[in-house]
Design a protein around this nucleic acid. Structure first.
Lengths: 132, 132
DNA sequence: CTACTTGCAAAATATTTGCGTTATT
DNA sequence: AATAACGCAAATATTTTGCAAGTAG
């Protein structure tokens, strides 16, 4: 039976209270503020447990280490190539896509994820200013 | 100016001749058959150069190390959760999606990638046999 | 009490880098 | 020749793991 430890709670809380999709190391840094003796091993082990119990998910985004987020409704991600931020999109999720591809391929499709990439508004502004 | 070395050529050739989306290490292993003295540093350095010159692309797929593929027409990927293979899909690419999301978010969208996940046909068969 | 978790440290992986040498242009 | 690229080995991440001690249930 899984136990509820303050380390595990703290890690989950950090993820529920941010929208930045932090890496394992930055989760470790944040939790250390609250639990100074926590070890990285504990962070990695708990990230794994939380994934296995479907409370968080891992994001493998272009050009960065794995990031994590607390599980929410399905949504897509956008990554800014300049500032490297990862932003949750409101864009509606294409519910039929899985069935569509499943029918055409004969595979059993359980999920799909989309990563958009480009420039966020902040970076577009900064960049365009530099042109003049 | 970039030079054309046999190491770089061999790495690119390996990627052009496979559909398996190999990892850096398995590329290293394959190229070693042809160039026994090649080093891993050379493989990593060349994978970077080939990406920067847009000849190959890196795939960050759920539950595995980075994989690589020679650049082709845009396409989506499917990952089997049982055998962990990554398969290129014929599925048509949604060309309007970038503009659509760009309009709604105000971001400049340069690309999008989709990863589907589930069970491939082979694994569905194996798995269903085990039920009886 | 039991056994899941932790902290710590060491080990295992993965990737990058410094440097003297090789080889492409 | 000039210098990009290489091989090798050492240096850096990054992640996993063994183990004795701590603690939730």
């Amino acid at each position: 039976m899984l136990r509820q430890t303050k380390q595990r709670e703290a890690i989950l809380r950090v993820l529920k209270n941010t929208r930045t999709h932090p890496t394992a190391d930055s989760i470790y840094q944040k939790v250390k503020g609250e639990l100074p003796h926590i070890s990285k091993g504990t962070v990695y082990r708990n990230l794994k447990v939380l994934q296995d119990t479907d409370q968080i998910s891992e994001l493998k985004i272009q050009g960065s280490l794995s990031r994590y987020e607390a599980k929410q409704e399905a949504h897509y991600h956008f990554r800014c190539e300049k500032c490297d931020r990862v932003i949750d999109l409101d864009e509606p999720v294409n519910q039929q896509l899985n069935d569509q591809v499943g029918r055409r391929t004969g595979f059993q499709i359980l999920y799909h994820k989309i990563e958009f990439g480009g420039l966020c508004r902040d970076c577009m502004l900064k960049w365009s200013k530099k042109q003049f």
